[in-house]
Simulated scan of single mutants.
Amino acid sequence: MKFGVHFLLPCGIGQTPIARYRDALAQGQLAEELGFESVWPAEQHAIPSQSVLSCPAVFLAALAARTQTIRLGTAIVQLPLFHPLRVAEEICTLDVISGGRAELGVGRGTHPDHYAGFGASLAVSRERLEEGLDYLRKALSGQPFDFHGRHYTAEAARVVPEPVQPGGPALRLAANSVDSFRAAGRAGIPILTAIHINPPAVLAGYLDAYHSARAEAGHQTATPDDITVLTPIFTAERESEVTQFMGPAVDYYAALMRGNLTTLMRRCGDPSGVFARLLARLDQLDLNAMRTEQAVFGTPEACVKTLASLAEQLGAGRFLAWFDFVGTTPAADVERSMRLFAAEVAPRLTERLEGHCPSSVRQ
């Protein structure tokens, strides 16, 4: 079992981007000190209340200079917004800077403001995503390649610098709809998914589609390392602390997501019904509801129990812990939660799942 730390950087009232990045980089350094296996920042654009982290590779380069061993992954780069050659160049440069620690998580993204800002079309975003995946699988090796697609063409192209890792940084696809799970399965690549977007019961069905698509395409059976699950996490010694810190966080999250989804539905429609289902859940969302199936908030004992159930249900080999959930929790309390998780949750969870007592978070 592997444990990573996820970063999204919303700016709260009166908070500056300078302070937000300072705290996040400090938490990334702490993650390495505590033995976490990896860090995974997400790319967002145009909405500072949601995040000021628009360039995950730049953030990871800064963190690479402050760390030695922790792996550095993007979760995610919105691939349809950029030429895949540029994405490959950035992640391979990070691989060189970090001494071979880079991983590339990509996804489609759906927010119209993100697409409008780059003059990109949502209508062809899935085509560009799937073609971009094919392109990246050739480009990340660092060797010369040709590519002929509808959206991208290359003749004897090559990524410079060549990555440190043989074959290039590992590629993963963010999957939160059944179409994305199937696309990842057809490509035979690992996935990143999130329980705050889809509850575990829904994800289990999507994972069935992923495994079926892999088999139909002739790929090897997925292993637990192919399945990474992102979840908001807050570990506290007492239940009263969970209520104190996560109650306001959930209220803020629900209001923010409600506004974002309403905008998305107005601009893009909702042909698959995903946004409508999410809005219905948000209307009922409070701390207790979120703890039921969208987050892992609680004492160490409660967190171990919940994460063990998720790992067994979903076949996950890595959890990405979103400790600094929506930015409402003071940095000192975020770090206290990280320390408690590393000391009391990760070792016990790994022992429960793998039958031995580990010496650190990284396994």
Rank of each mutant, 00 (worst) to 15 (best):
E33Q: 13
Q50R: 15
V250M: 05
P248L: 03
Q50Y: 15
L63T: 06
V326Q: 13
A321W: 00
A204Y: 06
I191A: 02
L282G: 08
N260F: 02
V39M: 06
A302Y: 04
F323E: 06
G28A: 13
A174R: 02
P17Y: 03
T235E: 06
L136Y: 01
A289P: 01
N260V: 11
E43T: 00
L60Q: 04
G73Y: 01
E162I: 10
M265E: 11
G100H: 04
L72R: 02
F181C: 07
Q15C: 08
F59Y: 11
R22K: 15
A64P: 08
F59L: 06
T243I: 13
R66L: 14
L285S: 13
A222S: 15
A342C: 13
T74I: 04
S141F: 01
G259H: 09
L171P: 02
A308K: 13
A321D: 01
T243W: 02
C55E: 13
A342P: 13
T153D: 14
Y135C: 06
L34D: 04
S212E: 15
R352K: 15
Q284F: 03
A302G: 01
R362D: 08
A183E: 02
V326D: 11
G99Y: 08
P248W: 03
T350V: 14
T93E: 11
T299C: 09
E131N: 06
A249M: 07
D333A: 05
F275N: 15
P10V: 08
D134Q: 13
G99C: 10
G185S: 11
D226T: 07
A184G: 13
A65C: 11
F323D: 08
L285W: 07
S38G: 06
V5M: 09
A24G: 12
G28F: 03
R291I: 01
A57I: 14
I227F: 01
Y152L: 03
G327S: 08
G247P: 02
I13A: 15
Q29H: 06
A139V: 00
A222M: 07
R336M: 08
R86M: 10
G185Q: 06
Q44D: 10
F341K: 10
L140E: 00
W40P: 09
A75V: 08
C92K: 05
G188S: 04
Q363L: 09
L279T: 11
E130N: 11
T221D: 14
A157C: 08
D134A: 14
D333W: 03
A75H: 09
R318M: 12
R86F: 05
G327P: 09
C55R: 12
Y206N: 14
F297L: 10
Q313C: 10
F234Q: 03
R22Q: 15
I97H: 09
L85G: 01
F323W: 07
Y135V: 03
C92W: 03
Q165S: 00
A213P: 07
P199S: 06
G167E: 02
I70D: 01
I233K: 00
P169F: 00
T292Y: 10
V159S: 05
L122W: 05
S360P: 00
M338D: 07
V5W: 04
I18P: 00
N198Q: 13
P190M: 03
L282H: 12
L310W: 09
Y152T: 06
D179Y: 12
T69P: 00
V5D: 08
